[in-house]
Design a protein around this nucleic acid. Structure first.
Length: 274
DNA sequence: CTCCTGACCTGAGTGC
DNA sequence: TGCACTCAGGTCAGGA
């Protein structure tokens, strides 16, 4: 499910609920997700006070009073729901729930279990194996034309594959890469190393614009994504190419083409995108 | 190193 | 209804 805008939507919803709150209790319904969960996770979390949750790429990081940080990744199908009181029922894919002292709850559910949770020492985020190699935040000033030029130079893969590489840009996934390439009028098949100059400038603006707009709309709801309050994400109405194979391009009316690139579907207008 | 494929999981949709 | 098959917002491990 979740790319940067969906993760940011979750983080934003968590912030006012958890910040400054003590964890009253934790329920773990299984001892692994994608990987085994840290031993004693429930006991470690209980009694700690939550800081302000932040985001790095597609990860949510929740700093805790005990100098540890809870790392959350939602995988493909993960979601967090927030409740103002004890949830009426737990579903078969609810794996982890936290009760706060103010009697609100948040519940992590993930049917496919590609998500994961981990604990790290606060301050050591950059050394964590899952975070160490992450690339630039696309909404930060560090995401510049110079950064992109250096990052793409000499790459022999397609621009589509390069943009999905979290070591280059942190947080993009299949939906927003397709949408940003359409907005920048760049073919997903173009050699990454050949995206320079005006094209690179358009790409940076398009990535920023697509992400900002999607965050404003609460992300994109296709199958699994809901905002933590239960509302869907409305960016689905803005999708120009993703999931629209065969439909008319919004710009030139040519049919949107679907191809397969490194195992993922790419949608693009062969007329507008070069 | 770089790049691509397969694997991990469940559920929804499609076609016979 | 049932079954087989495909596909899905991710990304890691392994091999070419």
């Amino acid at each position: 499910m979740p790319e940067l805008p969906e993760v940011e939507t979750v983080r934003t919803a968590l912030e006012p609920v958890v910040t400054g709150q003590q964890i009253a209790s934790v329920r773990l319904m299984r001892d692994n997700l994608r990987w085994p969960l840290p031993g004693g996770l429930a006991e470690i979390l209980t009694g700690q006070i939550c800081g302000i949750p932040w985001r790095r790429g597609k990860y949510i990081l929740l700093p805790l009073s005990g100098q540890q940080t809870l790392l959350i990744h939602l995988g493909m199908s993960g979601a967090i729901r927030i409740y103002g009181r004890y949830p009426k029922s737990f579903g078969k894919h609810d794996h982890f729930s936290v009760k706060l002292m103010n009697n609100s709850w948040f519940v992590f559910s993930d049917p496919r279990r590609f998500g994961y949770l981990d604990l790290l020492q606060t301050g050591n985020e950059a050394k964590h194996p899952l975070l160490a190699a992450m690339g630039v935040e696309p909404l930060s000033n560090a995401f510049s034309e110079q950064y992109l030029d250096v990052g793409l130079a000499g790459r022999k893969q397609s621009i589509k594959s390069a943009l999905l590489d979290q070591r280059l840009i942190a947080g993009l996934g299949n939906i927003y890469v397709n949408e940003a390439l359409f907005e920048a009028r760049i073919s997903p098949r173009r050699l990454a190393g050949n995206v320079v100059g005006k094209r690179a400038q358009r790409l940076i603006l398009a990535i920023r614009n697509v992400l900002y707009t999607a965050i404003k709309q609460g992300g994109t709801s296709l199958r699994d994504h809901v905002q933590p309050g239960g509302e869907i994400g409305y960016f689905v109405q803005n999708l120009k190419v993703y999931g629209r194979g065969g439909e008319a391009c919004t710009s030139c009316s040519a049919p949107i083409k679907v191809i397969r690139q490194s195992g993922r579907s790419s949608f693009y207008c062969p007329n507008c995108q070069r």
